[in-house]
Amino acid sequence: MSFLEVTSFLFDGFIISLLIFGVTLLLGAPLGLPIAFCSMSRFKPLKYLSKVIVWIVRGIPLMLQIFIIYYVPGLLFGFQLFGQVDRFFLLEYGIMDAGRITAVLIAFTLNYACYFSEIYRGGIESISKGQYEAGYVLGMTKSQIFRKIILKQVIQRIVPPMSNEIITLIKDTALANCIMVCEIIKQAKELAATKAMIWPLFYTGVFYLLFVGLLTVVLGKLEKKLSYFRS
């Protein structure tokens, strides 16, 4: 296999890595918000429920969570949930392991939503009480105070920790290969197994590096754009 062929073969896998990355970010980031609000809720049962969920999700290795979500429905109810997805839904579109990918996406989205929620909570709680009070004495409603005063300050504060988490996310996608999802590491292992080529495995690092480089530049720009004020 030529270098170009290997690159193309690995790139097919990296598309899956990027798919997991994109979907997790797109669904996990908004899902983190209600979890954050629940964990700050004054209604105790809701607060503790969300704290327990965050504790479990952050307390168990992501790899194990992928196994649990993929296998447990079948073991418990004798119903191969994700197998059904494989069989009926996406096979005709040429996506071989849609069921496995779906399981991975659910696990990643839940996991990252919990991490994001803690970042949001930290950001919201770090805004001084005086900002709320200033809005309040100026006759603003609670929702105006949040939307017009608090939100942007929170965003400014959470960009650095979110950047960190987002960069971790692209590398975490490699975990998907534990249930045979054909992401880039799995593709490289495939080459090692069938063609006795070990170097493509190390070569995958270049893909991650380039993408993380791109992320660093984009997120750095965002951080800079928001640095016009100091809160």
Binding site: S128, G130, Q131, E133, A134, Y136, V137, G139, M140, T141, K142, I149, K152, Q153, Q156, F229, R230, S231
Partner: peptide, 24 residues
């Protein structure tokens, strides 16, 4: 009624010790 409370709130103004300006 929050609306009523806000209306009353506007009868008084408060200047804080540490300003509490909106930084953005």
């Amino acid at each position: 009624d929050p609306k009523e409370k806000r209306r009353k709130q506007l009868l008084v103004g408060l200047v804080f010790q540490n300003f509490n300006l909106f930084p953005q």
